[in-house]
């Protein structure tokens, strides 16, 4: 299984070129493919007073994404933000914000609200960054207390910016432990694949 990272941990990560310069930091994530993958990152300048940049970083140009930095080859891989959002948008998230969306199962049960996105980074670097799950604030009806839970996602899902639809069986794989979450995602996805 790939490395799992919380999307909130990515914000403010420095963007470093091969030449060792920190040219920007991550500001926000643009999701592609119905919220199932990372499409690009919007950027902000380094330093307290630097505002957002007019350029963005397409995922394809990321050489490596780790706990301490995002590595890119050079400044030339950055693209104008409008271009990046245009191509990734493609009706994907309906322009909505994934955070705070309500997670609904296909049987109509609310599982809670999204507070963070869990991303799996493939070992090879340039692999796609897959959204493997959400961290949710559980709905009271779930009876699991207030502690945030992690919910695995299928490879594809429907998201409207208001609701996120997940198969009912996803609720069987809820966990509160990020280190064990990778196994839960794998188990959930192989169960979905087997069921078809």
């Amino acid at each position: 299984m790939s490395t799992l990272i919380r999307a909130s941990a990515l914000a403010k990560l420095p963007v470093v070129t091969f030449a060792g310069e920190d040219i920007a930091q991550l500001k926000d994530i643009v999701y592609a493919a119905n919220g199932g993958q990372i499409g690009a990152f919007t950027l902000a300048g380094r330093g307290i007073f630097a505002g957002p940049l007019k350029t963005s970083l397409p995922w394809a140009a990321v050489v490596g994404l780790g706990p301490d930095a995002v590595i890119i080859e050079s400044e030339e891989v950055l693209q104008p933000t409008s271009d990046v959002i245009g191509s990734a948008g493609d009706g994907a998230t309906g322009g909505g914000d994934i955070l705070k969306s309500e997670v609904l199962t296909d049987t109509g049960t609310s599982l809670g609200r999204v507070v963070d996105v869990i991303i799996g980074i493939g070992g090879g670097g340039r692999d796609q960054a897959d959204v493997v799950g959400y961290e949710i604030e559980p709905a009271e009806s779930l009876g699991r207390g207030k502690q945030h839970l992690l919910i695995p996602l299928p490879d594809t899902l429907a998201a409207s910016g208001e609701h996120l639809m997940v198969p009912a069986s996803a609720s069987d794989y809820l966990t509160d432990d990020l280190s064990a979450f990778g196994t839960a995602v794998d188990a959930f996805r192989s169960q979905l694949a087997g069921g078809r």
């Binding site: 470093v16 070129t17 091969f18 030449a19 060792g20 920190d22 490596g64 930095a69 590595i71």
Partner: peptide, 13 residues
């Protein structure tokens, strides 16, 4: 070794 800049030394992993 790939580069030495103001922020870091970058090496191939």
């Amino acid at each position: 070794l790939l580069g030495v800049g103001s922020y870091a030394v970058v090496v191939r992993s």
